[in-house]
Amino acid sequence: MRDDAGLRPFSLLSPAVLVITIGLLLPMTMMFRFSLNRYSANELMTQALTLSNYARFFGDAFYLGILAKTIAVALASTVVALVLGVPAAYFLARLSTPRLKSALILMTVVPLLMGNSVRTAGWMVLLGDRGLCNAILIFLGIREEPLRILYTGKAVLIALVAAILPYMIISLQSVLEGIERVYEEAALTLGAHPATMFRRVLLPMLMPGIFSGSLLCFILAMNAYATPLLIGGPTFQMMAPLVYQQLTKVFDWPFASSMAFVLMAVTLASVVLSSVFIQNRYGRL
């Protein structure tokens, strides 16, 4: 008798494997190959095996500055989303009215239903020099001149946090749902003040959610395109728009490809490093 039980999971996976191979691995391999080519103004690029594109990126303080800024913004927006997300997720998870809970969860994810650029355009209307915020400030006489919010790092941060917050809340809430209230009650009866209970009991038990939520948000923020492009404008640049700009405006495909790989490698490295750190600190997740 032939034992083909071991084969079945693989055959179920194969359509997905096929899609990923054609749609992701193949273009990525090609792109990596491009990143080793040489830029040519006349022929787009010439075949080569050179690391000069990577050298150019790491040798130029301008590009390194943008990478550093990207990491800083991604980290900051993740931390802000975490701080805002924990109370919201806790409130959601502990709601006892099922109907209100579903309604609020739906409201949390509604922003994800509209396109990223539409949402970002909304922030532009709100934060622009003649936007709603400034109109109110001037109307109330708090400021004479419009406050410059749009095209600053602060504006990018605000809009990015808004974009990634739903992912954070949902990640945290799903883990919190699995933490029974009885653990909180046990800590309280043993004499723990609610704040101490949160720090000593809830937070460590919530760690898997904090980790997965932060990971998701950090990756999304690192690779954010529409938000930094529209809100950051020409003055506040981040990596993803920079890659796109090199690709479509400068037509330097080899350099754009190498920058895309730098962005990917840095994101991957921070994810791996943080998971190693967290596992050492809090045990297996």
Partner: peptide
């Protein structure tokens, strides 16, 4: 937390991320 009671829950509610000794020490640390 201000009543000084010892409650044993139906499902025990031991803190899963703490060792036996840490669980027992919790109330004393508080």
């Amino acid at each position: 937390y201000a009543r000084n009671i010892g409650l044993v829950f139906q499902g025990y509610a031991l803190f899963p991320h703490m060792t036996v000794a840490q669980n027992v020490a919790f109330g004393l640390e508080m």
